[in-house]
């Protein structure tokens, strides 16, 4: 694939995320009912549908991948606020910054993007693994992708698998950050909604990038 199509590729990615989030909205909200304030599915779906519709109105041909990421960051943030707004906005902006100086969105570029998003989220939320947050999906996913970076065909399946395992593992954690942290031990036994929605994003990324990453 050629460089000029990266903006379109990312736009396709955000479309897929938006569709997937709309489908998982109820499930995510149910998770947030258990240990949060019952809005996570609503927030994520609203935010990514705003991103998708903003990008659909943009002239992608004249945009770089970095510009698409930056537009997604701002749009997502303005649409949702909440906890996820600053977290993902910072993640996307961080990825955008990395892209500026970077080569096309080939396998290495995709892994770098995944890591950059993760690092951005970490910086904004000052969290770490084991806090029972979205980071418990993003961090193992980025690690797994990096470990597989020599095998372009396996990057996204590994990332998804690791992310899903990480999200699953939040079930046995006590929340240390975000709203659920107020519940203390009552948060045990429930999957973190933010980790679950991270997996939804990762899977949409896999769908987008699988096959493209061979070049």
């Amino acid at each position: 694939m050629v460089h000029g199509n990266d903006a379109r590729l990312l736009s396709r990615m955000f479309n897929k995320i938006s569709d997937a989030m709309a489908k998982e909205k109820d499930y995510l909200t149910e998770l947030d009912e258990a240990i949060g304030d019952a809005d996570h599915g609503i927030t994520m779906s609203l935010g990514f549908s705003a991103v998708a519709s903003e990008l659909s109105r943009s002239d992608l041909d004249s945009m770089t991948a970095a510009e698409v990421m930056a537009a997604a960051a701002t749009t997502f943030l303005d649409a949702v606020g909440a906890s996820t707004g600053p977290l993902y906005a910072t993640g996307f902006l961080h990825a955008s910054d990395r892209m500026n100086a970077h080569r096309p969105l080939d396998a290495a570029g995709q892994v770098a993007m995944l890591r950059a998003i993760t690092t951005g989220i970490q910086q904004r939320g000052k969290g770490m693994r084991g806090d029972k947050t979205m980071l418990d999906a993003w961090m193992p996913a980025a690690d797994a992708a990096e470990a597989r970076s020599g095998e372009p065909g396996h990057i996204w399946s590994s990332a998804c698998e690791a992310g899903a395992l990480g999200a699953k593992a939040t079930q046995s954690m006590i929340a240390l950050r975000g709203r659920a942290a107020r519940l203390g031990e009552r948060s045990l036994g429930h999957i973190d909604p933010g980790a679950a929605s991270a997996v939804v994003i990762l899977k949409a990324m896999r769908e987008t990038f699988d096959g493209t990453a061979s070049g």
């Binding site: 304030d37 019952a38 809005d39 609503i42 927030t43 609203l46 943030l77 303005d78 649409a79 949702v80 606020g81 909440a82 906890s83 707004g85 600053p86």
Partner: peptide, 11 residues
């Protein structure tokens, strides 16, 4: 003013 039970964004 934010969305329901959600902080407003920075703008």
């Amino acid at each position: 003013v934010g969305n329901v039970f959600s902080s407003p964004p920075p703008m």
